[in-house]
Amino acid sequence: PEPFSGGPGMPELILQLLQLEPEEDQVRARILGCLQEPAKGRPDQPALFGLLCRMADQTFISIVDWARRCMVFKELEVADQMALLQNCWSELLVFDHVYRQIQHGKEGSILLVTGQEVELSTVAAQAGSMLHSLVLRAQELVLQLHALQLDRPEFVCLKFLILFSLDVKFLNNHSLVKDAQEKANTALLDYTLCHYPHCGDKFQQLLLCLVEVRSLSMQAKEYLYHKHLSNEMPRNNLLIEMLQAKQT
């Protein structure tokens, strides 16, 4: 990752978020370690799909670990923390995937959190139409964000905005969360105006991309639900549990 330091044009909130950001190679090593443990999956299940499900679960666990270290979030009671994560878990997973592809920088393949590169032709041949369509739609967003020159400070700030995107009326601690939402919006606006003055509407363009992240995450949840109904998901799957949990 690029080193970032404070200074003019770097809002304090973004600086703190950059310092909280986990190192990709540490996340990769942890997840690879978990995946090497014997699977408790169904014997009739294709090994590759079961592995992808565990990979997605472990990626979400890394996201929960990140959220627990985040300022404001760590001050909240568990009920509010759960409400926030239940609202945005699929968006955080989609955005995590999309940003990894921006860093990967190859249009013809996708990079998994474990470091493996999968050709899009392989996805087309083996993934099934629902997953293939999801991957292609995510690739379109990757191109859009690449064209917008999304950088790491903007990525961490957008991730924080996704985490705090729940309407405060569903939370016990309204004021703390509302304050976090306002501070993150201001930080992102200030940062983009200072670092990309030639692109006056970058802030609005980035927020529009979050609408697409939300829409993609809905499609991803439909895919998961379809797999669940077809009895293809592993037992004790975290994402299915998130999918079935009642929203606030």
Binding site: Q86, E241, K246
Partner: peptide, 26 residues
């Protein structure tokens, strides 16, 4: 124990709850 109330995701609760030291096995 990470037994959760109806509708509450038990694994997520276990990941977040400060009173639980053991991480859930997923």
């Amino acid at each position: 124990s990470c037994r959760a109330a109806a509708g509450r995701p038990a694994i997520l609760y276990a990941l977040l709850s400060p009173s639980l030291t053991a991480r859930p096995s997923v």
